[in-house]
Amino acid sequence: APLSPSSTLPPYFMKGSIIQLADGELKRVEDLRTEDFLQSAEVSRELKIDSSTVERIDSSKTPDAVIIQFSVGEHKAQVCVEVLVEYPFFVFGQGWSSCCPDRTTQLLALSCAKLSVGDVCISLTLKSLR
């Protein structure tokens, strides 16, 4: 079952929010690039980047929410999340994208592309601890 969406978006997606990369560098959320996530994950002991391909986007019973089905990593694990339509995901080589970019821009001032089936989003997994 998908996780229930929070009724509000986290504050760090607001345009102008200061994000600290793993090497200590500070960047605004709207200036983040794919390389920032990849390089931060490289120096992380616990986290690694996985590719999550959008397989389906369905409407939800919850108002203003959608259910997104991802195929995650090389094992293509199927994961569903229920999020607000304005929730931004970072797409490889494209940047912030949401199901309703107009609403994301309206609420967060964050420029977004339209999230579509086939888009490959950045996600995280825990590295195997040995």
Binding site: P11, L26, S40
Partner: peptide, 25 residues
């Protein structure tokens, strides 16, 4: 004198969803 306001700084990984279970291999 202007009091410096503290600006919240968020870690990079808070922006990325955890979507996959831990792989055991």
């Amino acid at each position: 004198n202007v009091e410096p306001r503290s600006v919240p700084v968020f870690p990079w990984h808070s922006l990325v969803p955890f979507l996959a279970p831990t792989q055991s291999d």
